[in-house]
Design a protein around this nucleic acid. Sequence first.
DNA 1: TTAGACCTTCCAGTGCACTGGAAGGTCAAG
DNA 2: CTTGACCTTCCAGTGCACTGGAAGGTCTAA
Lengths: 153, 153
Amino acid sequence: MRIGELADVSGVPSKTIRYYEQAGLIPEPPRTSSGYRDYPDEATTRLTFIRDAQHAGLTLAEIRGILALRDSGQAPCDHVGDLIQQHLAEINRRMAELRKTRTALRELAQRAAETDPASCTDTDICRIISTPNRHRDERTSGWPGHSTASASR
Amino acid sequence: MRIGELADVSGVPSKTIRYYEQAGLIPEPPRTSSGYRDYPDEATTRLTFIRDAQHAGLTLAEIRGILALRDSGQAPCDHVGDLIQQHLAEINRRMAELRKTRTALRELAQRAAETDPASCTDTDICRIISTPNRHRDERTSGWPGHSTASASR
DNA sequence: TTAGACCTTCCAGTGCACTGGAAGGTCAAG
DNA sequence: CTTGACCTTCCAGTGCACTGGAAGGTCTAA
């Protein structure tokens, strides 16, 4: 498979695929006689994994580490086991943070549901909501006063 | 509370706090007579939320949107409800991706546990594992051959 | 009153993850 | 044999999220 086809099936641009190679995320593929990159089918799986992990918020450096671990396959010394555990802990940490954010958002949805939607007829208000601080020097300080009884953590 | 204290209690550098203000993530606080920023206690909660959401993989633009929604408080028109639902969907998407990554990592841990740790005595091998492609022009193409029976998705 | 810690604005630089474009080689169809 | 799509390398630029540093004002403690 040449780079363009891989780009099509994986949804990752050719440019980005070359960049990933250069960044050590995917190994250098064999070349055709004319110098074109010639990818095996597994390449799509790998790119899919990279994109999944990335959308989940992992950096390329972290993903590179995970992939390297995975590629090593035959040499899982204690150190590698530790690394895997570290990555798992990191992922669990991130999921916890995502859950917190989701909870905050659900509370918001709750508040929104409880207020009468009919009370908003002017589209300008919504525009203000979606783009804050576009209209400076308001009279108010802007700090929301909703119950935040002293800081946690 | 002045910016330095807020930085200390929240763990977010003063520079970054000013940057968040300029970026519309936190409102402009009142100033002391000498022009120093004077933050209310809620500021720490807000910074904590920003950091949580960020560690979860949300961009500042997304977080800004969520905070703006939250600040609006009293004007939840249908449009705002939609936005909340969009953000929730996005977060669920990200959590699904995080779960996929975690599953991949757990399989890895499984493989590592099944192989004899005593088979690895040389620290060099581990060093190779943690920093791939630092040693180019190897004889192998580098593509791992482990069972990836045709691409999914 | 002066040292030192803290604050202000402004502007420039950094690292990550791409992304665009130039300049040129390859290949199948017309 | 030429057109056009595809590929190659290399280098430069972009957007995001900071981060550092200059130049200067403020405040407390010795």
